[in-house]
Design a binder for these strands. Structure first.
Lengths: 236, 236
DNA sequence: ATGTGATTTGTACTATCGTACAAAAGATCA
DNA sequence: TGATCTTTTGTACGATAGTACAAATCACAT
């Protein structure tokens, strides 16, 4: 039924290459790129440091392979969900469906690779914060198309909002999404145990609800900032 | 007029200690903690590596001192702005004032120290993403009080929203705030030059507008998730 | 069983890391 | 001016970083 794998595909230990990738993903996502050594990764994967060099040449190469593994499937899933969302008739429902199509693959498995998309999304968040060059390049050329597609779709369902505002708000969405995956325990702590920051389903619902409302906020007409409101002194 | 400084206060070069702090702040905020070496910092400050050891003992000590420098003034300013905001009568206006009291000190100078609060806020974002232990400890014991005060204030102006939802939404606010400071160029890129992500005033207005709307979103009753909407297939 | 190519191991090299410390230099006051 | 304290410099040490590479080991076809 299933083709017998050749020696080219199966390592001695069952897929050491995958184990290294998974370990690196986990360690990078929780500690950052520079805080993790190749030896740390090899140890976590139960492998020899030399194996990492053999499979991925360099530490950068390892990171690059992680991105290659996830970007395709995740964007594909997002595209599918976005296409379905765009077919929703009711504008309010459509907006929510679009936001959901953006958020869900980031939390749940964007691919069927072990661990799912949450880990990879967290990894992206951390690499973004560290200003990692390898990540920056591959992200800009891989995710910008997707981001534009979402921005366009949202703009269609909110035609009265300037595109600039949509860009800002989708930027906020991504920031909120990232931060929810980076420090979920902060939610648990601040809610005094009433909420569980690590609960993906709960986070998704909260994020979708809040974001939809943010997108629907009145436009910010920067041409006329005259509408000054006596809020709080802006002086020190 | 001004008291003549003694030798205890003025270094040979004008405040080398401050120069090191400023350089470290900038480098940590843009590259992360582990990617920056003590030598990098010394070089950027025009100092000798040994000077860093002399003034701060360790690299962790340097980071700790950066936090000590900013946390106090920033929280003080936030408290003042929050107190003023709570006195606003109109509930809608009060909510906006509260959010503004949270956001403004993070973008503009939380203290009168060189560079202002934006750099320090970005630093906090990066340390948070890297899971830095030194930062985690000092943040939890320094900012949680402030966070609770804001959450309480927001809850007061939105009594019909469960506290859990407020926590989540303020968490999203912080994430959006962090991300805006970490990758402002992404906003410029995605808006095709129509918006400037580095413009603090613009970012603040957008963030306040979007966040107020998010807080005002209807409550998310997790007791009854029955209100299922036919949005998009959740299957792969 | 044996040869062959893929993989894993063990180790070593060089660079750079954080930090320590003695000496030099500067500042201050008697 | 000389004594004393603070700051800066220069250098060195041990630890660890990324990576390379030869030898050992394994899976499989013949």
């Amino acid at each position: 039924m299933i083709r017998k794998p050749t020696s080219r595909e199966t390592a001695r230990k069952p897929n050491m290459r995958e184990a290294i990738l998974a370990a690196a993903e986990e360690l990078f996502a929780t500690n950052g790129f520079n805080a993790v050594s190749v030896r740390d990764i090899a140890h976590a994967a139960g492998a020899n440091p030399g194996s990492v060099t053999y499979h991925f040449r360099t530490k950068d190469g390892l990171l690059l392979e992680i991105y290659r593994r996830h970007c395709g499937p995740m964007n594909l899933r997002r595209s599918e969900l976005l296409a379905a969302a765009r077919r929703v008739r009711d504008l309010q429902d459509r907006l929510e469906a679009i936001v959901r199509a953006y958020v869900v693959p980031a939390f749940t498995s964007g691919s069927d690779l072990a661990g799912g998309g949450a880990r990879f999304t967290r990894l992206r968040a951390v690499m973004s914060a560290e200003g990692n060059e390898v990540a920056r390049k591959i992200i800009a050329q891989t995710f910008d198309d997707t981001s534009h597609a979402f921005i366009d779709a949202i703009h269609e369902s909110l035609p009265h909002i300037p595109r600039t505002d949509i860009v800002w708000r989708s930027h906020f969405l991504l920031g909120a999404l990232y931060y929810s995956l980076v420090t979920p325990e902060r939610v648990s702590r601040l809610s005094r145990g009433e909420a569980d920051g690590s609960d993906a389903a709960g986070a998704i619902e909260q994020l979708v609800q809040a974001t939809v409302a943010a997108f629907q906020a009145p436009a910010l007409d920067q041409a006329a900032p005259a509408r000054r409101r006596p809020v709080v002194s802006s002086k020190t």
